[in-house]
Amino acid sequence: MRSRVLCGMAATVALLVTGCGSDGGAKPGDAGAATAAAPGAGASSAPAVFPVKVKDCAGKETVFGSAPKKIVTSNASSLEMLLKLGAGDRVIGTGFPPGKGTLPADVADAGAKVPVLGDMVIPKEKLLGSGADLYVETFADMSGGMGGGMGTAPTAQEYQAAGIKRVFLHSTACTAMAPAAVQDLTGVEGDIKNLGQVTGTSAKADALVADMEKKVGAVKTALAGVAADKRPGYFFFDFDAGTKQPMAVGDRQVANAVITLAGARNVFGDVDGDFKPVSWEDVVAKNPDWIQLGVRNRGSDAENKKAFDDAEKFLREFPATKGLKAVQEGHFVRVGSEVTTIAGTRNADTVQQIAHTLFPDQVKDAQ
């Protein structure tokens, strides 16, 4: 299923973003320009040098002669990246705002001050009239249409007339073009570096990516002795998407990379796409060894605990799932949805947390 359709579904039932396995790095361009590259290219660690050329999923370039001054983000994923980069003071609005308690503590106050231009997709007229010179697109496909009940997107000509340039997050907006399953975080890291170049915060971007690589590298080293056939089967149970029909995480969603890096095997890793509705019979047939209780942050520890408890209670009492191996053995992972399925720096922390839960003897440290 194409990313634009699934993101429309996510607006109603799930997790708001999709994933793809792109690198999104940077390489030197012509005439001394820094290029934020399309999938498959390496990412430069050098400071941003303008002009910066940014490629979309289809390889079309957008050139930035200077850092943007007024930025609008399509949802919480790109907003959090910009806040982490120190460019939050330039964000003048967002769509799909982060829920209560979902932003990390060090940027939560700054994030709360960003005006909400749309509880879901930003209305076309409001986006074009926002005064932005950059729009960071997290989940639209490259056709320019939003589809899936998401509304009508501005055309390329309308963006140009409004003076708005666009940057697409390769790790979330390019699902349909991803050449292979996403099994690492290079796409997310590439997006962070690309935004660092565009906003002139490359040094901070490099530091964020280095921290992610250190955390994931430590897990990889700790689990080096775990054979592929010993990886436990893992099901991400999207409790907030509803219990009537489960929503599976496929091989192009960033969660697939998180699960893989944590030493597990996504039982729906054979799904070619990001999200896909499946049946409880499908879940039973997979009989996972572990189940992640995917709930959204409720805004407090007490409310989060209740949500996790409710998700576990459902699985223990629902006739189709109470006999599953993971349920019988109490193998539940209590890690929230946002840090697992939304691209960002905290994906690396989630890798550590899941790995520590599954392999406590090998992975001692967890955030």
Rank of each mutant, 00 (worst) to 15 (best):
P98F: 13
M81T: 12
V72H: 03
G65I: 00
K124V: 09
V72P: 03
D133R: 10
A110T: 05
K70Q: 12
K84T: 12
V72Y: 10
A58S: 14
K113I: 07
K70Y: 03
P115S: 02
G118D: 03
K124W: 10
D106C: 14
G129P: 05
F96K: 00
M120L: 13
T62D: 11
T62L: 13
V116D: 05
K126H: 00
E80F: 05
L128A: 11
G86F: 05
A110N: 02
V91T: 04
V72C: 06
T94A: 01
D119Q: 15
A76K: 02
V91E: 02
P104Y: 05
L128G: 06
A67F: 09
D109M: 10
K70C: 08
K70M: 05
S66L: 13
T94D: 01
G65P: 00
E125V: 14
I122D: 02
R90N: 11
L127D: 12
G101F: 11
K69Y: 00
P97H: 12
T102G: 00
I92C: 04
M81Y: 06
K100R: 13
K69R: 08
G111T: 05
L127N: 13
A132R: 07
K60Q: 15
K70N: 14
L83Y: 09
P98W: 14
S66Y: 13
L83Q: 06
S66W: 12
D109N: 14
T94P: 01
K124N: 07
L82M: 12
P104N: 12
M81G: 06
E61R: 14
E61T: 15
G86K: 11
G59F: 09
K60A: 15
L103S: 01
F64D: 10
S74G: 13
L83I: 02
M81P: 04
A132T: 03
L117K: 07
G129S: 07
I71Y: 06
K69T: 11
G131K: 08
P97L: 13
R90E: 05
D109I: 08
T62M: 12
T102K: 10
I122R: 02
G131A: 11
L128Q: 06
S78G: 07
A87Y: 00
K113P: 04
D119S: 15
P98C: 08
G111P: 07
L128R: 07
G93R: 02
L82K: 08
L83W: 09
K69F: 00
P98E: 01
G118F: 03
K84W: 11
P68W: 05
R90M: 01
G111K: 13
V116P: 04
A87F: 03
D119H: 14
S74Q: 15
E80A: 07
S130T: 11
G129E: 06
L127V: 11
K69W: 04
V114I: 14
K60P: 09
G88A: 02
K124H: 09
G118W: 00
P97W: 14
R90I: 04
M81D: 12
S66M: 15
P115A: 05
P98V: 08
P68E: 04
S77L: 12
M120A: 15
